[in-house]
Amino acid sequence: MRLISYAEHGSPDVLRLEDVPVPAPGPGQLLLRTEAVGVNFIETQLRGNTTPFPSPLPGRPGGDVVGRVEALGPDTEGVRHGDRVVAFGVPAAYADQVVVDAARTLAVPDSVDAATATALGSTAQTAWSVLDAARLGKDETVLVHAAAGAIGHLVTQLAKLRSAGRVIGTVSSPVKADFVRAHGADEVVDYSRPDWADHVRELTGGQGVDIVLDSVEGSVFHDGLRLLKPYGRLVYYGFAGAGGEVAKVSMTELLGLTYVVGTSLDVWTRAAPERVAEARRELVRLVTAGDLRVAVHARLPLADAAEAHRIIEGRSHLGRVVLVP
């Protein structure tokens, strides 16, 4: 079967298509025949070795995989041969067939397009988890960074569906503004401008916001912290703009009666299993019904994985980038 890997860090050109044996599922695992793979930003950072943590070699990019069960490993329960599922956090995901942990799968209705269904993996679940961490209340004002991205356009919609009063989306380019408004934002701000935080203050009548959802970090982090109202919450869940440097918070910055909380999908899935299971069922329902709209920017052949990474690194995409074997 075909698999995308890289033997060295560098530009998207280091990605290579190789032929490897079909993997065998172990205990509690499944073998899936891939229908679509959601490409996540973190994989471009791992490939380029720009994460704040080590990126070991050789690398095999991970992602969100939609496919049908072809084989079950020993002691695997809850699924059957032929079931259609989405799996998140899949290692070596850019491949014709993948091995996944059964516990990291959700059933996918046949009515949902495979590229759309990839969002039910890490992106939609992450969007839900950051709103959980934010303790979003009715009618609160939420600032969503990178609101045109694979997670951003989902969390913007979910915030409105979960009774946010006002959602302000930030973008890296003004050409993305219409897309963000079409996916639930009440106002849009270009965070590449040095005065972006002043613009947010103007939009809120100088009051600031109740919640900041920050997957960008870098230069926007401290400005976002200063935009919080008393009792406001900043949820940190990514570092797309950090360039390898992690923001540091001085304790004196929290004297404005503000909170900073970090979250990740893995921590969320372990923290409250019953609540997580309920959230997953609701996400499947929302996507199937069309109430949570998944934008697919590009569907590319598996062999064009390098182009998928170029699109994401170019920050021009609106929604998901998907590989289709």
Rank of each mutant, 00 (worst) to 15 (best):
D266R: 10
D266T: 13
D266F: 11
V267D: 11
V267F: 10
W268M: 05
W268C: 06
T269E: 14
T269I: 08
R270F: 12
A271F: 08
A271G: 10
A271R: 12
A271L: 12
P273M: 08
E274V: 14
E274D: 13
R275I: 11
R275A: 11
R275C: 08
R275F: 08
A277K: 09
A277N: 12
A277T: 13
A277P: 15
A277G: 09
E278C: 09
E278R: 12
A279V: 10
R280W: 07
R280H: 12
R280P: 11
R280D: 13
R281Q: 15
E282Q: 09
E282F: 03
E282K: 07
E282S: 08
L283R: 01
V284L: 04
V284D: 02
V284P: 01
V284Y: 04
R285V: 06
L286S: 00
L286W: 05
L286H: 03
V287D: 00
V287W: 02
V287F: 01
V287G: 03
V287P: 00
V287A: 02
T288G: 07
A289L: 07
A289R: 07
A289H: 06
A289P: 05
A289V: 06
G290C: 15
G290M: 15
D291H: 12
D291Q: 11
D291N: 10
L292V: 00
L292T: 00
R293G: 07
R293Q: 14
V294P: 02
V294T: 05
V294S: 03
A295K: 01
A295I: 07
V296H: 01
V296K: 05
V296N: 05
H297T: 09
H297L: 09
H297R: 10
A298F: 03
R299I: 02
R299N: 02
R299P: 01
R299K: 06
L300R: 02
L300W: 04
L300C: 00
L300E: 02
L300G: 03
P301F: 00
P301G: 01
L302G: 03
L302A: 01
A303K: 15
D304R: 12
D304F: 10
D304M: 07
D304C: 07
A305M: 05
A305K: 03
A305D: 04
A305G: 07
A306V: 15
A306P: 08
A306K: 13
A306W: 08
A306G: 13
A306D: 13
E307Q: 15
E307R: 15
A308F: 03
A308N: 03
H309Y: 04
R310A: 04
R310F: 05
R310E: 06
R310K: 05
I311C: 10
I311L: 14
I311M: 09
I311V: 11
I311R: 12
I311N: 08
I312E: 07
I312F: 08
I312Q: 09
E313Q: 15
E313Y: 06
G314M: 02
G314T: 04
R315D: 11
S316M: 15
S316Y: 15
H317E: 09
H317Y: 07
H317K: 10
H317A: 11
H317N: 12
L318Y: 13
L318N: 14
L318T: 15
G319P: 05
G319S: 09
R320L: 14
V321C: 06
V321F: 01
V321E: 03
V321D: 05
L323M: 04
L323W: 02
V324F: 08
P325N: 06
P325Y: 04
P325Q: 01
P325T: 06
P325W: 01
